[in-house]
Amino acid sequence: MATCLASTGGAHAQTEILNVSYDPTRELYREINAAFAEEWKAKTGETVTVRAAHGGSGAQARTVIDGIPADVVTLGIPSDIDAIAKLSKKIPGDWRTKLPNEGLPYTSTVVFLVRKGNPKAVKDWDDLAKPDVKVITPNPKTSAGGRWNFLAAWGYAYERDGKDKEKANAFVGQLYKNVPVLDTGARGSTVTFAQRGLGDVLPTWENEAFLVLEEFGKDKFDIVVPPTSIYAEPPVALVDANVDKKGTRKQAEAYLQFLYSDRAQAIFAKHHYRPIKREAAKPEDLAQLPEIKLFKIEDLQGSWDDIQKANFDNGGLFDQLSRAGR
């Protein structure tokens, strides 16, 4: 019965490629995909439709492992693409060497969104661990944004307290005691904070914070930029096994290359991501991105394998903290 219901791949008259992406990039890729389709049509005469799927970064990686016919993945954190490579072999293990800048067409960071006028006077990561501050952040187990928030807080405390891991762990534990709601994705947390009115501060993707100001109005929220934050790396990769089977390698590779083009770089900046080619972006877009001292978590904790294992795998730091903190 299953087979008679099954649709086989490649049944579409026009070429379709599927970009499996993480939560906050919905608005971004809507514009990028349309731009790419236009450019590809002009260049080759072929009509290509880029489909997008969005969700928590980990959940999205899981669908690729389980066989969603993704041509490219654009996820929130390198360890999720590592997991696809490791568990499904659909992506080669050395994927970070295949594209410029380690597969990062743009980067981002974590800033704070607070209620208008910043009633709790949140200025820096310290303030998030204060007893009377409620912090809204997604579950780091399932959300890339959640993991960047976690790592950013850890890195901040690590640098502050003379590179003491124990103290950094304790600080993060203190901070997560202030978290009343853990949504599964960054978007869920934003809705909880902005629409439902819960919590005092939402540490979130820089692009997401700007988007909230645009969607909900600048009169309701303020962005607070901490003096230091994390260098967040949302990478992209080709899903080799799928494009070869679907015969879409040419289009999918071109799509990834397009992400590094001036046109795409300008779109990234417009949506408040940090383009790697700053010269391609409009100056007024760049001016919106504040100067922050950014640290790289790999410099503090080592390889992504180690980072994932130590913090987020079963029995990792997050599990230990939530067990202790309940």
Binding site: G58, A59, F312
Partner: peptide, 10 residues
């Protein structure tokens, strides 16, 4: 929900 989360963690 924990089932869904476990799936997301592979």
């Amino acid at each position: 929900l924990l089932i869904v989360i476990k799936l997301s963690e592979f």
